[in-house]
């Protein structure tokens, strides 16, 4: 079960500079566990208190998983997963 994961610049310190890594899992949560086992420290940048961190967007193929079940979103062999930093802010 290989899934290609695109890693943003800010997280490449965890992947030895690689912008794309392989991982496996049946859903986003499993995928992140698998990533963590190979790239220590990456999980805490993506997940807080059992849900996806608000500072990141995770996409399975073209779909933002926030609108597709979050960490429970299904991942299939051959999918492309993209992680991007959320770009946001506010006056406070």
């Amino acid at each position: 079960m290989a899934v290609t994961v695109s890693v943003p610049t800010i997280l490449r310190t965890h992947t030895g500079g690689e912008k794309s890594v392989e991982a496996s899992g049946a859903n986003v949560a499993e995928l992140i566990e698998d990533l963590e086992s190979r790239h220590s420290g990456i999980k805490s940048r993506l997940v807080t208190d059992g849900s996806l961190h608000r500072f990141v967007n995770v996409y399975v193929n073209d779909e933002d998983v926030r609108f597709a079940g979050g960490l429970e979103a299904a991942v299939n062999d051959g999918d492309n997963v993209t992680i991007l930093p959320a770009v946001a802010g506010g006056v406070r």
Binding site: N57, R66, L84, A88, G90, V91
Partner: peptide, 23 residues
């Protein structure tokens, strides 16, 4: 130019689908 998905006077957020396309 990006869409402010929040359409708010006090907050902004790139629309996530548009951001993926642009990135």
């Amino acid at each position: 130019e990006m869409v402010n998905a929040e359409r708010s006077p006090t907050f902004y957020r790139f629309d996530s689908a548009e951001q993926l396309k642009v990135w």
